[in-house]
Amino acid sequence: MTAIDDMTEGRDSEPLGEVGAESPAMPEVVFDVEELSVYYGEFQAVQDASLKVHENEITAFIGPSGCGKTTLLRCFNRMNDLIETAKVTGSLRYHGVDLYDSKVDAVEVRRRIGMVFQKPNPFPKSIRANVAYGPRVAGLAKKGPVMDDIVENSLRKAALWDEVKDRLDDNALGLSGGQQQRLCIARAIATDPDVLLMDEPCSALDPIATTRIEELMHGLKDDYSIVIVTHNMQQAARVSDRTAFFSVNVNPDSDNRTGILVEYDSTQQIFSNPSDERTENYVTGRFG
């Protein structure tokens, strides 16, 4: 609780990039992943992934299904903890802190790292209650003007305010699919995270709603670091600054499919001049 208060105050007083930026070309590292492997019981889902996620950038994870991109994403806010058998080896540092240190509390992590899911999953409550959920459980605010401000700001940032401002107390399930997903983004923003994890956020949406979300992501980039998993290469090319391409290694003996990180580079590089043949095959549509 107090930790969060300290942080929020700190942010007000310290302008962006004043302290400790290494060089203007290379923004701060948010996630530093080294040799990360994820197991579900005996089964290895991701093998030895290493990459750095940078601040105020959009990083896309692409690859065929079963390549471990969602699994890796779910390590970033420790959602994999919810699966009893999941086990993580290697290191995953968030602003320099090892997320899998035994002292780290997964709940605290999730309050700083927001997540948007594949299928819009608004709670069967009012629009207001959906947005207020995170701040409320984090103890940031209860009711009253403070909460109203949070709700309005979050909805504005998610480009949903104008559509719902007159019906904040209506049930969120009455919104369209695209609106629901933007509500989920607003809900994730409301806890004041610095990272947004998006797990195929547009896979359940129509093209128009997808375009709106993509536009929204461009705007959110200024305030948040975004990691997005997508099965849609064009989407990755359109929205992201960096792209990680994952592939599947099939173990011939056990038929187990393990995800591996093939290549990680600027999006432009990945799509125009990939260094790995597998990446090239995938982005040119010859495989996958």
């Binding site: 919810l82 927001g114 997540m115 899911f117 999953n121 709670f123 809900r187 994730a188």
Partner: peptide
């Protein structure tokens, strides 16, 4: 639905908060 549970956890709810809400 598991979506509701994940949604709550993703927003930083503890287990008991998820159960309760």
């Amino acid at each position: 639905p598991s979506g509701l549970k994940e949604g709550a956890y993703g927003l930083g709810a503890t287990k008991s908060e998820m159960v309760w809400t």
